[in-house]
Design a protein around this nucleic acid. Structure first.
Length: 509
RNA sequence: GGCCGGUUCGUCUAUCGGUUAGGACAGCCCCCUUUCACGGGGCAAAGACGGGUUCGAUUCCCGUACCGGCUACCA
């Protein structure tokens, strides 16, 4: 029995990685790191017909973005390489053969058409989906019921065949799931799953057992959708003689659609207008891009945080956790049994919280990039930091910084002149003319001083500051939003402030 | 249909048999703010149903209902 904690995430490279997948990685990762163990990524590409170009690279980019670096993987190498099942192909057949020899599995020569025929022939109202199982296998063409000579003949003439597990007719398979406790199945209800396909590739069922064994996996976490096939895996561990090395299982609850029911899919995101994939994914065949959390403007810290809280909590009221805190506090026995509906509003709340807490320094690079995409070049780093600190409280998603802060770096794109024009008069015009003069003479350009000067001048002119502050805001910002006006004036500087006042005054003439 | 799993406010959830069933998001109201937010305060909102066990059940057991997953030579 290996003591060392070793977990694996075993994705199939068929497209973008979605929420549920990333959460599975996260729980694996947290568990491994908490226990000083290894986090392995193994690519389950046994179905060559479903291979999608770029999907594997995408998986690793996603893990990197989330801050979960594998200790072993096809990309990072490791002592149990290769980590791609397609490259381990030669490995599996011998075990399938071993099972046949021991009487735990058998050759099946049924063609796809024959299987189809069986399903339609035996389909009844009570049994809408007949299985290839103990009750039906004697009706099929397999090494269990065909004469030995015929089997030999079929084999020697290279007739395509698969190897199926021979499920016992009457046994109870029980195991302890780390999340669900005791779970049991009756073998009569489980079908004779294919272990080795006609193309020589193993199915998931065989591959996961062989690889978990060879890679010395200590704990196997996967989605709840795998629970029904757990008895097959348990039996395989036993039949292969590795029972003592079998990992502990944990079947994670599913992430469900926000509305209605069922597990969350990419389509729900398209339909409801929120991301489901971690990052943008472009399907190489259709060239269609599906938006990701990253590109929508989520911080990886927030993404990880919100995923962790979908089905887990530490028992306290704390909701904001960093990766380090999660590693420290995560516990598999506090993971829920029931699925959780995904709530995009709450997801945004996590991001908002993270943006608010994030020091401006950490945000600078991505904000700068966002601006660059809009054609705004930032040359003054200290102004950028100041601007970020001033507006981050009002940014939920990263692109909000464009709306909230671009006026710091360029003249307002639009001026809401209608907000001031109706109440604009000669007295106000005079006030701002005098304000320009006063500000031109200012030696100390700081918010409190600017505000005092402004208010004093208003008093001299017998005007209420309230009636003047909105016009000033429109002049500097362009609209009815943003941080305190004098903070803005202080940040953009004397020259720009005066220029903006003058410009709008001209528009008001 | 069968098998397996699940079920506390609209949503995410706390509760290790005894609570006015707590928090958060969203909603509504108020305060703060001479903009928009942030922030603060408040309102409304839940144990699917029926049986047990128990002095006492949201909590333990059984049944029902409902929801989900699986039922491929896909993972």
């Amino acid at each position: 029995m290996n003591q060392k904690v070793r977990v694996r995430f075993a994705p199939s490279p068929t497209g973008g990685l979605h929420l549920g997948g990333v959460r599975t990685v996260l729980f694996n990762y947290l568990f491994a790191k908490q226990n000083g163990g290894d986090f392995i990524v193994r690519i389950e590409d046994t179905d060559q017909t479903r291979f999608v170009e770029g999907a594997e690279a995408y998986i690793f980019e996603t893990l990197k973005w989330c801050g979960m670096v594998p200790d072993e993987s096809p990309l990072h190498g490791g002592p149990f390489a290769p980590y791609r099942q397609s490259e381990r192909k030669a490995n599996y057949k011998q075990y399938a053969e071993q099972l046949v020899k021991a009487g735990y599995a058998y050759y099946a020569f049924d063609t796809p058409a024959e299987l189809e025929e069986m399903r339609t022939n035996y389909k009844t109202a009570e049994n809408p989906s007949p299985q290839y199982n103990h009750a039906l296998r004697d009706k099929m063409r397999n090494s269990l019921f065909l004469p030995a000579e015929e089997v030999t003949a079929l084999l020697s003439t290279n007739t395509p065949y698969v190897i199926r597990i021979k499920m016992p007719t009457d046994e109870t398979i029980q195991f302890t799931d780390m999340i669900r406790g005791e779970v049991s199945f009756h073998t009569s209800q489980v079908d004779d799953k294919v272990l080795l396909k006609a193309d020589g590739m193993p199915t998931y069922h065989l591959a996961v057992v062989v690889d978990d064994y060879q890679m010395q996996i200590s704990h196997a976490f996967r989605g709840e959708e795998w629970l029904p096939s757990a008895p097959v895996h348990l039996l395989l561990w036993k039949y292969l003689g590795w029972e003592k090395e079998m990992p502990q299982w944990a079947h994670l609850p599913l992430i469900l659609k926000p509305d209605g029911n069922g597990k969350l899919s990419k389509r729900d995101g398209d339909r409801l207008g929120f991301p489901v994939f971690a990052m943008d994914w472009t399907d190489p065949k259709t060239n269609e891009t599906t938006i990701g959390f990253k590109e929508r403007g989520f911080l990886p810290e927030a993404f990880v945080n919100l995923l962790a809280m979908l089905g887990w909590n530490d028992g306290s009221d704390q909701e904001i956790f960093s990766m380090l805190e999660l590693i420290e506090k995560f516990s598999i026995d506090r993971v829920h049994k029931g699925g959780a509906k995904f709530d995009y509003e709450k997801a945004k709340w996590y991001n908002h919280e993270w943006i608010k807490r994030m020091p401006a320094k950490h945000l600078e690079l991505s904000v700068q990039k966002l601006f660059a995409e809009k054609g705004i070049t930032i040359t003054d780093d200290s102004l950028l930091a100041k601007a970020i600190d001033l507006v981050k409280d009002r940014c939920t998603l990263m692109p909000d910084f464009i709306q909230q802060a671009s006026f710091f770096f360029e003249l307002p794109a639009e001026i809401d002149i209608a907000a001031v024009k109706p109440k604009w008069d000669e007295k106000k015009n005079m006030f701002f003319t005098e304000l320009i003069r006063a500000y031109e003479l200012s030696t100390l350009w700081e918010a409190p001083g600017l505000e005092i000067e402004f208010k004093e001048l208003a008093a001299v002119n017998q005007l209420k500051p309230g009636e003047l502050m909105l016009p000033l805001r429109i002049m500097l910002v362009g609209g009815k939003f943003g941080p305190g006006v004098f903070d803005i004036a202080a940040a953009i500087g004397k020259e720009s402030t005066i220029e903006r006042i003058k410009q709008v005054m001209r528009l008001l003439e």
